[in-house]
Simulated assay, not measured.
Amino acid sequence: MAEWCNTEVVLSVVGGKWKLLIIRYLLLGTHRFGALRQAMPTVTQRMLTRQLRELEEDGLVSRKVYAEVPPKVEYTLTEVGESLRDIIGQLDTWGSWYRELRTPPARDDEQSTSDS
């Protein structure tokens, strides 16, 4: 087996479009599947299910099923998942900085036409 660098290990666990967002929402507390879908309306049900299963398999998310009809399932971060709190906070800060960096300043001619 080839030796992975630490960054590859991280990406194998939290890489992809949805996993960090799922973790970010679960940092706010326990959520049901429907609440996660509402928080991320562009994720498909199939993809969210798959990502949650992978996060559970990797030990970042725990899944609790209640014996009710209809079934009730809740997702919570494990201690390992909670350990990403500071890292996700730093990524959020960096994203804000990067968005400002990439947002073009308003042009003078746009302002003068709106003043007319």
Rank of each mutant, 00 (worst) to 15 (best):
Q90F: 13
R107S: 12
R32A: 08
D109T: 08
E74H: 11
L91N: 06
A2P: 07
L48I: 09
K64Q: 14
L77S: 03
G15E: 13
Y98F: 13
T7D: 09
I23F: 03
H31W: 05
L91V: 12
T7A: 13
V43M: 09
T103E: 12
T44H: 05
T103K: 10
I87N: 09
Y75N: 02
L60H: 02
G89V: 06
V80G: 02
S83I: 04
E3I: 14
Y66W: 14
P104Q: 11
K72A: 10
R107A: 14
I22K: 03
T76L: 07
V10W: 08
E82N: 14
L28F: 01
Q111Y: 13
Q38R: 13
V69Y: 12
E54A: 09
R32P: 04
L77M: 11
R46H: 06
V43L: 06
Y66T: 10
E100L: 12
L48Q: 04
R46S: 11
L36S: 05
R24I: 02
K19F: 00
T103M: 05
E56Q: 14
L60E: 01
P104S: 10
E54M: 08
G89E: 14
E68Q: 12
N6W: 12
E79G: 03
S112E: 15
T113E: 14
V9E: 09
G15L: 13
T113N: 07
K19G: 00
G89P: 00
I87E: 15
D86R: 07
L77R: 04
G16R: 01
S12D: 15
A106E: 15
L21W: 06
T78H: 10
L77V: 07
E68N: 06
K72L: 14
E100W: 07
A2L: 11
V80T: 15
P104W: 05
L52G: 01
S12R: 14
C5P: 03
G95N: 13
T113G: 00
E79F: 02
V69F: 08
E68A: 12
T78Q: 10
G59E: 06
S12N: 14
G95I: 04
M40E: 03
L55V: 04
R107K: 15
S96A: 14
R46L: 09
D109L: 10
G34P: 02
W4Q: 14
V69H: 10
T44R: 11
K19N: 01
E56F: 03
M40Q: 05
E110R: 13
P104F: 06
L26N: 00
L52C: 02
Y25P: 00
L21N: 07
Y25A: 08
T30L: 03
V13N: 00
E8P: 00
G81Q: 02
E57G: 00
D108Y: 06
Y98T: 12
E100R: 13
L20S: 07
V13H: 02
C5I: 13
E56I: 04
E79N: 08
L55T: 01
V10N: 03
P71H: 10
L77H: 01
A39N: 06
R53A: 10
Y66S: 14
V65H: 10
L26I: 06
T49Q: 10
V65L: 08
L27P: 01
Q45N: 15
E100K: 13
L55A: 01
V14S: 03
I22D: 01
Y66C: 11
L84D: 04
S62Y: 05
L101K: 13
Q51F: 00
N6P: 06
T76K: 11
V13F: 03
A67N: 15
D109R: 09
L28C: 05
T93W: 10
Y98G: 00
A2W: 09
G16L: 04
